[in-house]
Amino acid sequence: MVRSAGIDVAVPRGWDAEIYQRDGDFTGQSAGDAGASRPVVHLGTFPLPSSRGDFGSGAVEIMNQDDLLVVLFEYGRESVGTPLFARSGIPRVAAADFGPNNMQRPIAGQSGAQYFFNQSGRAFCLYVVLGAHARRNELVPEVNQVLAGLTIDPE
């Protein structure tokens, strides 16, 4: 179990996990709360490299076909209640959601899926990368197993 910033993750056997605080001046997307620190959760079936980007750059490159990367990225308070985050509750993923073009940066053979949602008054993006798009039917249940062990408390 890994716990930080009101987020609990039951880490499956053999997975790596880390919950860290990203800088508040995040500029890649509108994360809001300028200056505020927000948590990012990374879970991987492989050794997570010590240097990697919020959405997995530096990690996805070393994934093999059986690997999975799950990213949970929290946005600022002003995002709560906006249409993008209208979906309530931690999503469950489906094989049909994944596509090579959903990757932050496409890598041959891999595919990704992205979900925006709110939980406990907080706004999140869930981003999942599959090591092999061709194996999505086998890999997706593992992702949902991880998501079932994820708990998000109110701030």
């Binding site: 993750v9 056997r13 053999g14 880390e18 860290y20």
Partner: peptide, 13 residues
């Protein structure tokens, strides 16, 4: 970690 992150390293499996 030294940066204060909560971390879990898979050793088994």
């Amino acid at each position: 970690t030294l940066s204060g992150s909560a971390v879990h390293v898979g050793v088994t499996g």
